[in-house]
Design a protein around this nucleic acid. Sequence first.
DNA 1: CGCGACGTTGATTTGCCTCAACGATTGTGG
DNA 2: CCACAATCGTTGAGGCAAATCAACGTCGCG
Lengths: 190, 190
Amino acid sequence: MPDSLINHIKRFIEINEEQEKILLSFVEYKKINKKTFLLKEGQVCENNYFILKGCLRLFLNLDSGYEHILQFAIENWWITDFLSMQNGTPSKFNIQAIENSEIIFLNKNIKNELFERIPKLESYFRIILEKAYSAAIMRIHFQLDYSGEERFMHFNRLFPDFVQRVPQYMLASYLGFTPEFLSKVRGKKH
Amino acid sequence: MPDSLINHIKRFIEINEEQEKILLSFVEYKKINKKTFLLKEGQVCENNYFILKGCLRLFLNLDSGYEHILQFAIENWWITDFLSMQNGTPSKFNIQAIENSEIIFLNKNIKNELFERIPKLESYFRIILEKAYSAAIMRIHFQLDYSGEERFMHFNRLFPDFVQRVPQYMLASYLGFTPEFLSKVRGKKH
DNA sequence: CGCGACGTTGATTTGCCTCAACGATTGTGG
DNA sequence: CCACAATCGTTGAGGCAAATCAACGTCGCG
């Protein structure tokens, strides 16, 4: 079942069967239900999560009572709060399953042991972080330079099936506008 | 002179003198003048840049003729366009010196050779990417959840000296509003 | 069935932009 | 070293994209 993690890693680096076994012996596999929290505001984030199946979100609670989604993660994505994990400080964020999901847990301490056993894995994580970082920069670019309607259109073109998969109010939250506004935008293109 | 690169690396990993020498023999040191471009829109990004002294910005040209700053980099920061570098595609961005600066150039191919010689360096880059990524996520958070005035106040509290260091119109561009608006915000707190 | 979660639609408000005109400061060539 | 231009910052009037607020329709589910 965690084959897809191995496959994902093999897209970026080469590892042998021996190493695959070590890797799999270091991580945990869990099924979780929709709405399960993997991290709650105030806790210290101890794990990296890899999504085998399902969908998670990272969000924060606003004073207003609303919440704002900063990241989604679907199949073959990692999700975590690096800030809390690095510094060992309480997280401002929540990580929660949007669907019933199957997740690989990689504990932060275990991760360091793993790097000693399989140094190449550093390379894998470096590469996907470079990608995640570029994606974040592009997202800032869109946030700054495009209107709400343009952001939605663009997102819809890039991830048409994902748009179907999550409630509209979560999409609106992620894209940085209100659910009402999204509803109006969708209504327009008759 | 490139001591500060070595010092920066030593904040995160241990390296010996031998390795320091290898590292320094792999990189290039250059002084560049204010307004020099290290990357222009349309070029493929070939280097990582480490700032020993000075200040750089990464920005993109908008159709409107304006430009939008996506990143600043000062002493002890790396800057590059990972997207272009990873894929070998033409960059949408420009990297330009805002001040006369001293820069370490690390070519992308050399970087990979370097990783073979000193695998530990993967770890260094992984760690700083984790930090850069968290910072980008926090920036998205501020962009989504705070007003222009709040974003400026917060930035000003975090980096009071940096605010003095760059022209206001660049700050405005980075924070996501117009120079006129920034001027009005500053005027208010009499 | 009835309740809560989600989406829609319209009226009103507002944060910030646009445009324009005008000082202040910097820098560059004569 | 001055003159003049360019760059940068300030201020005000008017406008617009999106938020807010509110009311209502609809669906899924205990």
